[in-house]
Write a protein that binds this DNA or RNA. Structure first.
Lengths: 101, 101
DNA sequence: TAAAGTAAGTTACATAAAGTAACTTATGTT
DNA sequence: AACATAAGTTACTTTATGTAACTTACTTTA
């Protein structure tokens, strides 16, 4: 393992987006907010990891968490502007996958 | 963990690109072919994983491996059309990182 | 001619991340 | 009282990643 000669911003981006499930979670939120269970049901991810990833994304400011004090409690997640700015990237991956996979 | 209601092509794309180092390796090859050691030196990745990732990328047809029987042997890696088709995606991530990170 | 160097890996082992399933909490409904 | 529900969390197993030493095949240097 050598020192990185790599742009630190790109490295940081890939540390986020290159983590398993992250990009697919963002993809799920691109068309609007979703509840925890909705995301969980749309992806083959466990609650444990989904919770962990959403916390990371919230901490990095890509995702916003809103709690509705109903019974049972409802929690919605949505992309911030920073998260939404990845729309073209995610769309690009989707197009690539349709053309090449 | 639920069943995926997700587009299988996108899932497959993320299985590749969402694996640690993969996208950064592709990024290293976008401007032309590179040798094993060059990639290894440009990224904080170990030879073990770099070898593993390059094999996956070769198997999936994104990367091409060329051996030059010199002494010591020289091996060059370059993107195929399929790999090169990710140029905009990688560029998009780079732009996003510059604007938001 | 034995020792050292070089590129491209591989092996063996330690640590960290992800998968699985059961459990929790705070109400509301039957 | 027992059961249901959303959103997690916990404990434990399995898989992936990190680290560093080793390998191979030939060449140059001492």
């Amino acid at each position: 393992m050598k020192e990185a000669l790599l742009c630190p911003r790109l490295a940081k981006a890939m540390e986020l987006l290159g983590k398993r499930w992250t990009t697919l979670i963002i993809y799920q939120l691109i068309d609007g907010s979703k509840r925890f269970n909705e995301i969980e049901s749309s992806l083959p991810i466990s609650g444990r990891l989904l919770s962990e990833r959403l916390k990371e994304l919230e901490k990095e400011g890509l995702v916003e968490r809103t709690v509705f004090s109903e019974v049972p409690v409802r929690v919605e997640y949505n992309l911030t502007d920073k998260g939404l700015a990845l729309k073209d990237v995610v769309g690009g991956i989707e197009s690539w996958s349709k053309e090449w996979l």
